[in-house]
Amino acid sequence: MSSIHEITLMLNGDPVEAAVAAHTLLVDFLRDSHALRGVKRSCDMQVCGACTVLVDGRPVSSCTMLAVDADGASVVTIEGLGGPDGLDPVQEAFLEHGALQCGFCTPGFILATKALLATNPSPSREEIVHHLSGNICRCTGYQKIIEAVESLAR
C-alpha cells in the first residue's frame, strides 16, 4: 500500500484539492483525474518531451514526477494557455509558421517554449535549438518550430 496524501495546487489557474497515492505519477493525475489529455504520455523516460508541463514555470516531464510533488505548486498544461480572448502568443506563432504536422508533440514544444521565453525573452537560434533539443518531433518538422520560436524572440 502506498501512503495517501492530501495535496492542493493551482491547476491551470484554478485551485485543486485532491488525495493521491504516493506512487501516482503527475501525468496520470492530470490525464485520468482531470481529463487534461493535452499531456501526452509517450516515451515514459523523459526523453521525448511530449508529457511536458510547467510546474512553477519550470518545464518538467510529468511522466517522471510524482503527483504529490505538485503539492503547493502551480501546474500549467497546454489547456491552461490562451483563453476566451484567443490563443497564447506561442500558440499563434506555431499556427502562423505551420510549426506542427500530426500535433502529438506540439503541447510539449509550446510549453517548453513558454519556459524558455520566461527566462530568456530574446533567445538566439542556437539557444532555441539547445533548449528544444529535449523535445522530439517524429514528423521531423523542426525547422518550422525553430522559426516560430525565433519569431517570438524580442
Partner: peptide, 11 residues
C-alpha cells in the same frame, strides 16, 4: 547546462 535536456536539468 548541457546535461540531458531542459526538463531533466530543471528537476
Amino acid at each position: 547546462g548541457s546535461i540531458a535536456n531542459a526538463r531533466v536539468r530543471a528537476a
